[in-house]
Structures are given as C-alpha cells and as structure tokens.
Design a protein around this nucleic acid. Structure first.
Lengths: 155, 155
DNA sequence: CGCTATTCCGACTAATTCGCTCAGATATAC
DNA sequence: GTATATCTGAGCGAATTAGTCGGAATAGCG
C-alpha cells in the first residue's frame, strides 16, 4: 500500500541531481537522463510540472538546461512531492491542508475512518515538511568521476 | 499522492462495523453492506483477505456471519491495512520491515532517494502501529437495545 | 427432506492510471 | 543555418482498480 509511483521517484531523483549541480550551472535533461539512467522523454513530462511550480527554471536553446529556482535547503520535500504527484491526501474527506471535507459517509453516519486518514496525513506532512532537498544530497559529491561511488551511507 | 484505494477504505469500514458489534454476535455481510452503503460482492473479496489473515472469523450457513477474532483494542491499524493493501513500502528499496533492499540505482550510484522513503515509511508505520480499531469506534454509536449496554460498560 | 440464508470461490469486465514513446514545434549558442 | 536544447500534445500497451456475475458449499429451520 501507499506506494509512490515513478513520477515521484524519478522526479525526486531529478531534483537531487539538480541540487548536486546547483552551484555549477545549467544541467540538461539528457545529462540527467544519462547520469540517472532514466528515459529522457519521460523526464520531460515530469520536469514540466516542476517548472510550472517554479521549483526549477529553464533556459532554452543550445547549452541550455535546468537549475533549481532556490537553494536545496530551501526546498521542502513536501513541495516537491505535491508538485509531482498532486495533493497529499489519503482519502477524499481529508484534504491536503488537513481540513475535513464532508463526504458521502456523513449522510449515512459519521465518517468513521476520517480520524485514521487525518492522523496518517499529519504524520506524512510533518515528515515531508521537515525535510529538504539538501538532506538528500551527499555532502562531498562534487561531481567528479569517482564522486558518486564515494557517496556516504545514509541509513 | 499516497492515496488509499477503496480496498483500504471499505475494508477499514467493515472492521469498524464489526468492532461496533463485537460483543453482540455474528454480523452478516449483507447487514454490513446495508449499514455502510457498500456493494456486498465487493466486500466479499475484501473480507476474504481479512479472514485469511485471521483478523476476522466466519460462520457459514443461515444465521452465519463474521466477527473479529480479537477485541478491537488488540487490533492495530497497521495489521488491518497491511492485510487489505499489502506491505507498507513506498518504494522497492525500502521494504515493509524497514530493511534497505539493494535496488537498481545502487549499481549506478548510491540510491539517493532511499533516506526519503525510509523516513516517510517510519512515520507511517509508527502512526499505524500506535492506533487500534477501538479508537475508531464512536463510543455512543450502537444500534439495537443490547448495544446501549455495551457502550455503557466499555467506555 | 427441502428451503433459505449465508459464506465461499473464480472468472470476467469496464474504466482508469501508469510508464512510457513518438512526432514534431520553438528557441538559442555558435 | 545548423546543432543543441527546451517545449508540447497525442497515442498506447500493460497493469491496477472497482467492481459484477454466476454458482458451489454449508448450515439452520420447519
């Protein structure tokens, strides 16, 4: 249950890649695609959302590419995932902002499951709100050939 | 994102219904279906899982039905949702038990998203582990004359 | 016994979502 | 003006979801 689709997984991966290159300059999708082993044309769809949410900005044309609109430590993972996968709500009667919405069950009797989804949602939002992109970027990964291999263990 | 399917929603709802009737006796699926406004034949599929996981027990034949195998306060919501929707894992490289599994990304470079899914999973499991069916049963919600007595003595 | 209420079981299906691919249009450095 | 990019929309096969359908097995009751 509660599984994240490749939109979320790939999208976060793209954001991490951009975070690693934040101070270096523009990064093209084909480079990201090669580095991460993901299909370019699929990434185009994903990064479109990220651009529209102004999490990344783009430069068109030759030697163009993408970069983060803000420093990695100012981008919360909740923003990223909301952008990629839509509002964080487990069931219709608890909206993303935590507000209880009247649902079909309220007509019949009180919506008995609302407390469950509400608590679960709070736990998820809290976790994602207190986590930034910067935490997912290995500190010493300064993009050399061997840099990726040296990536620190984080578990 | 992270939305729960009707399997989870309906299944939890069935469990809550059974919890409300825990001390009364057997409860048939058609009764549950009418009370909760859910399609019987779909519920049959769901309750099959719950039975196989020994969360509910059944009695066949006329005047048969279902009941919880354990008192509501001994049934954790994590068990219920795992049974209904499968293992609680957000992405393939973090299993339900929290163990990190080698994934495709480890070949390329360190799996950069693992920390994210790992933390999120922990928050979800913690929430579900510390919540029991009993917490979702409204105290005064009881139908039938015998139910009022139950409500009075259990709360 | 026969009738009825109930659980049990497997197959089928329509609609939706997922994970892409394809074919281009548009913009910019050189 | 050409190569390199970002953009855009459409399509598409596989999987999942949310059920339905049809019937078999079991048990109480008169």
């Amino acid at each position: 249950m509660l599984h994240v689709s490749t939109r979320g997984e790939y999208g976060v991966r793209v954001m991490i890649d951009l975070a690693r290159h934040y101070r270096i300059g523009l990064r093209s999708l084909t480079d990201i695609s090669l580095a991460e082993g993901l299909p370019v044309q699929y990434l185009e769809q994903l990064i479109k959302r990220l651009r529209e949410a102004e999490l990344v900005s783009s430069t068109r044309g030759a030697h163009g590419g993408y970069r983060l609109s803000r420093p990695p430590d100012e981008i919360r993972m909740s923003e990223v995932l909301r952008t990629l996968e839509g509002p964080i709500g487990l069931y219709s009667c608890v909206a993303d902002d935590g507000v209880s919405v009247a649902c079909d069950w309220d007509r019949l009797n009180h919506c008995s499951t609302r407390l469950l989804w509400s608590r679960l949602r709070s736990a998820i939002i809290l976790t994602l709100d207190t986590m930034t992109l910067a935490e997912l970027v290995p500190a010493e990964t300064a993009d050399g050939p061997a840099a990726a291999i040296v990536a620190a263990e984080t578990n």
